[in-house]
Computed example of a mutant assay.
Amino acid sequence: MRVPLLTVENLTKHYPLGTGFLKKTGPVVRAVEDVSFSVAAGETLCIVGESGCGKSTVARLLMRIVEPTGGRVLIEGTDIAGLKTPTLRACRRRVQMVFQDPYSSLNPRLTAGQIITEPVENFARLSRKQRHGLAADLLQKVGMRPEMMHRFPSELSGGQRQRLGIARALSLEPALIIADEAVSALDVSVQAQILNLLLDLQRQMGIAFVFIAHDLSVVQHIGHRVAVMYLGRIVELASCETLFANPVHPYTEALIAAAPVPDPTRIRSEVPVEGEVPSPINPPLGCAFHPRCPLAVERCRIEVPPLVSMADGRVVACHVRAPATVVLTEPAANCCSTIHAAPPQALF
């Protein structure tokens, strides 16, 4: 059996709020709780959910920018959570990240060319000619003119800065790029350009993406599969077409119903979900969504629903919509589905 490019098993991250040097007492923020999924080579897995649901924390855990409280992150079968610095450095070449804010994620003291070549020079010495050639080649790949390598980030537009961030991520020839809200700060037209660029790079280079977003229209265009998170947990994971055509979890239904539709004649008949998102410091017992769920039953209030594999290949955590007849005991191994026969299409 082919090993997935990325496998996440029972990933958990708690932030202690206790006082004192050791911070062993007091409450904890349960940012990520028992998350499992996998990503195949050349696939795009989108992670969606409300603000504060743990999407960005998952991204930082995958990069090991923060240390996990529990669980495993395997890159091509190697658990990076337990690696020491020399071995971890080698694994970092396989996974790179594009950050949400193109303004603060670039060093303002370096030129565009220096920003692109800096990651490579952490691993190998480059001559001036090699640096110039690498920067020019990657700038052309992301749709920028080679002479822009001499400009500073302050001399670039928002879209150009995000392209520069993508070029920097590509400099180490990664197999996986984690894009954390990579287009949320950009204008709609620039968003389309960046998304089309990512799709082109995926087709040309076979790069896999973990794409974190809150804009469902963007997810629908770029994703192969979608993982829906609520209060630190995955509540539904399915192929993009399946999820948008027939959402099963009540929270997924609510997210899709709340998405704006560019049709002034459409009358919205769906009733929005009421109430506030519970605190991750003191999450409710049972299903975290039950205080806001119109379908909640007594079992939802006392028992955390397990991820259940359904007939159409999706996994859902819901006592009402997905009774636990077949419990998904190995989520990461079973959640890596075949990529769509028809890849996502460009936006414009």
Rank of each mutant, 00 (worst) to 15 (best):
Arg128Met: 11
Arg131Lys: 14
His132Phe: 12
His132Tyr: 13
Ala135Val: 00
Ala136Pro: 03
Asp137Thr: 12
Leu138Val: 14
Leu138Ile: 07
Leu139Asp: 06
Gln140Leu: 10
Glu147Pro: 01
His150Met: 08
Pro153Met: 11
Ser157Tyr: 01
Gly158Asn: 07
Arg161Trp: 00
Arg161Thr: 06
Gln162Leu: 06
Arg163Phe: 04
Arg163Trp: 05
Arg163Met: 10
Leu164Thr: 04
Gly165Thr: 09
Arg168Gly: 07
Arg168Thr: 09
Arg168Ile: 06
Arg168Met: 05
Ala169Gly: 09
Glu173Tyr: 07
Glu173Pro: 05
Pro174Lys: 04
Ala175Val: 01
Ala175Glu: 15
Leu176Asp: 11
Leu176Ala: 12
Ile178His: 06
Glu181Phe: 04
Leu186Pro: 07
Asp187Gln: 02
Val188Ser: 11
Ser189Cys: 01
Val190Arg: 05
Gln191Asp: 10
Gln193Glu: 15
Ile194His: 03
Leu195Cys: 02
Asn196Gln: 10
Asn196Tyr: 14
Asp200Asn: 15
Asp200Tyr: 01
Leu201Tyr: 05
Gln202Pro: 02
Arg203Lys: 15
Gln204Trp: 01
Ile207Tyr: 08
Ala208Gln: 05
Phe209Tyr: 15
Phe209Ser: 09
Asp215Lys: 00
Val219Leu: 09
Gln220Phe: 09
His221Ala: 11
His221Tyr: 08
Gly223Cys: 10
His224Ser: 15
Arg225Ser: 14
Val226Asn: 08
Val226Lys: 03
Tyr230Phe: 15
Tyr230Gln: 11
Leu231Phe: 13
Gly232Tyr: 06
Val235Phe: 14
Val235Arg: 13
Ser239Asp: 13
Ser239Tyr: 00
Ala245His: 13
Val248Asn: 00
Val248Phe: 00
His249Val: 02
Pro250Tyr: 03
Pro250Ile: 02
Thr252Phe: 01
Leu255Arg: 01
Leu255Trp: 02
Ala257Ser: 13
Pro260Tyr: 15
Val261Thr: 12
Pro262His: 05
Pro262Thr: 06
Asp263Thr: 05
Ile267His: 06
Pro272Val: 04
